[in-house]
Amino acid sequence: MAQKVQKTQAARNTTTLNRTHLISLAIYLLFLLTSTFLFTRNLLPFILLNLPALAIEVWFERIGRPTYTPPSPSTSTSTSGGRDLRKAGEPLDAKGLTEWMWDIVYWSWGNTVLVAIAGNWAWWLYAVVPLYSAWLGWSTYAGVRQGFSGVSAGAGGAGTGDGGGVGGQSKRQAKMERKGGQRVQYR
Rank of each mutant, 00 (worst) to 15 (best):
K95W: 12
T67R: 06
P70C: 07
L17V: 09
R178T: 14
A53V: 13
G143D: 10
Q182R: 14
G154R: 06
L85T: 08
M1P: 14
M1G: 15
L32F: 13
G167E: 13
S24I: 11
D103H: 14
N50H: 01
N50C: 01
S139R: 06
T77E: 12
L114V: 06
I47A: 08
G163H: 07
G154N: 08
G157T: 00
D93F: 12
G64N: 07
Y28W: 14
F148C: 01
S149P: 02
A118P: 00
A122Q: 10
R86G: 01
G181S: 08
R83C: 11
V129I: 12
S74R: 02
P52R: 06
K171M: 11
A2H: 11
L49I: 01
T69L: 10
H21D: 12
A153Q: 13
K175H: 13
S149H: 03
V58K: 07
W124P: 02
W135Y: 15
L125A: 12
V166A: 08
G181F: 02
G168N: 04
G137Q: 04
A127Y: 02
L43Y: 05
V151M: 00
D93R: 09
T16W: 10
G82Q: 02
S76P: 02
S72M: 09
Q146A: 15
V166W: 13
R19L: 15
T112Q: 01
I23N: 04
K179V: 09
G89K: 02
V115F: 03
P91Q: 11
G154Y: 03
R12H: 13
Y132A: 15
D103F: 15
E57S: 12
V113H: 02
G89Q: 06
P130R: 03
V166D: 06
T140M: 12
Y28E: 05
L125T: 15
G81Y: 00
T160L: 04
L51E: 01
R65I: 06
K7W: 04
K7Q: 13
V58N: 04
V58C: 08
V105D: 03
P52T: 07
L43D: 07
I63G: 03
N120Q: 08
G165M: 02
G154D: 03
L97V: 14
L17K: 12
L114R: 08
G159S: 06
G180A: 05
G147R: 13
T75F: 04
G157Q: 02
I27K: 07
Y126N: 15
S170R: 05
G154M: 08
W121F: 14
L136I: 07
S76T: 14
T40K: 11
A53D: 07
G159Y: 11
G64Y: 07
T20P: 07
A155Q: 00
W138Q: 06
S78Y: 01
I117Y: 03
P52S: 07
A88V: 05
Q169F: 12
T160V: 11
F60E: 04
F148A: 04
G181V: 10
G154T: 06
P73I: 08
T20S: 15
L48D: 02
F148Y: 09
E177Q: 11
R83N: 06
V105Y: 05
